[in-house]
């Protein structure tokens, strides 16, 4: 049972964080023309550090709620420093955001590939061929 609950390893959590990061970047792109909007970024490392074993709250009783598998909403959010200032106080630089969104999508797919690998492994084991 322990094997099954850990089979996806860190990748399941990583996928959620990557997912969240794409959302943050999508916000930036959506607000490219919004006055005073400040572009934000998700610090992947900071959020993943939350999942380190030392930080986890243990479920010592069956009625305790799980803690570790929720990505906290505000954590890891950073404001971006723009390369150039703009008149309307908007710090979104569309080309930068586009590049990052593309990279984030690639990162997401990488994590997805790892997950797929794990799922394939379990399948193979279950089939017993």
């Amino acid at each position: 049972m322990d094997y099954m609950s850990n089979v996806l390893g860190v990748h399941e959590k990583a996928l959620r964080v990557r997912d969240k990061r794409m959302e943050v970047l999508a916000r930036n792109i959506a607000n490219d023309d919004t006055p005073h909007f400040k572009a934000r970024e998700l610090d992947f490392k900071a959020v993943m550090a939350k999942f380190e074993p030392s930080d986890l709250m243990a479920n010592t009783h069956g009625t305790h709620f799980g803690f570790a598998d929720e990505v906290p909403d505000d954590d890891g959010m950073r404001y971006r420093t723009p390369f150039n200032a703009s008149v309307d106080g908007n710090t979104v630089e569309l080309t930068v955001e586009q590049a990052r969104y593309g990279k984030a999508a690639a990162d997401y797919q990488a994590t997805l590939a790892f997950l797929q690998d794990r799922v394939g492994g379990v399948r193979k084991a279950l089939r017993g061929e």
């Binding site: 959620r16 997912d19 794409m22 999508a26 916000r27 959506a30 607000n31």
Partner: peptide, 13 residues
């Protein structure tokens, strides 16, 4: 899932 949110955010934009 945040991917759902991306649809929402993209839609508003």
């Amino acid at each position: 899932m945040s991917i759902d949110n991306i649809f929402g955010i993209g839609g508003t934009a």
